[in-house]
């Protein structure tokens, strides 16, 4: 019940957001941003809602969503662990750190744990190469991370 209420409110505010754009086509990416911000991910229902409201074919909306890695069509975990796999982090051993996360959380990169607690993603360069390898959890940055730090980081985000 609470969830349906939340999504009804969410759709209402998304509709208001969409209304401000005159040229709908060029606003697609901005609208999808807002939608993902509200709902956490872009479900089929949300994409269909946007398509209908903006009078743009749903296939086009889906085409945009699937093209950009920022958008996700599956729910993400509450703790979003993102490991930088830019070149600077890679040559300083980020692969080992990611593998350790996979081992300890028992999920692969790109996946979310069944209890929606963690998701693990790799991203391409956050631009903090001086701190390589870099792990970003929600918005907190852990620099110069090693495989040995992984359990410490997991403990910290649990607490």
């Amino acid at each position: 019940m609470a969830e349906t209420q939340m999504s009804a409110d969410g759709l209402k505010s998304l509709a208001r957001y969409m209304d401000q754009f005159e040229d709908k086509e060029s606003a697609i990416i901005k609208v999808l941003y807002e939608a993902q911000h509200i709902f956490g991910y872009l479900s089929n229902d949300v994409m269909l809602f946007i398509a209908e409201k903006m009078d743009i074919p749903a296939a086009k909306i889906f085409g945009v969503v699937s093209f950009y890695s920022y958008f996700t069509t599956t729910p993400r975990g509450r703790c979003q662990i993102k490991a930088c796999m830019g070149t600077a982090c890679f040559v300083r051993g980020s692969e080992k750190v990611v593998s350790e996360f996979e081992k300890q959380l028992n999920i692969k990169r790109g996946q979310t744990s069944d209890d929606l607690k963690y998701s693990l993603d790799v991203l391409r360069c956050v631009g903090a190469c001086g701190l390589a390898p870099v792990i970003v959890v929600n918005d907190k940055v852990y620099g110069k991370a090693t495989a040995a730090d992984v359990s410490k980081i997991i403990n910290e985000i649990q607490g």
Binding site: E25, I29, K60, G63, F67, Y68, S69, Y70
Partner: peptide, 26 residues
Amino acid sequence: LKYGAGAFVCGEETALLRSIEGGRGE
């Protein structure tokens, strides 16, 4: 300001323009 959405190819100028126009950055 227009935000990119995580597609490396959008650094290519014609792809970038398609993305600003709101579509897939091809």
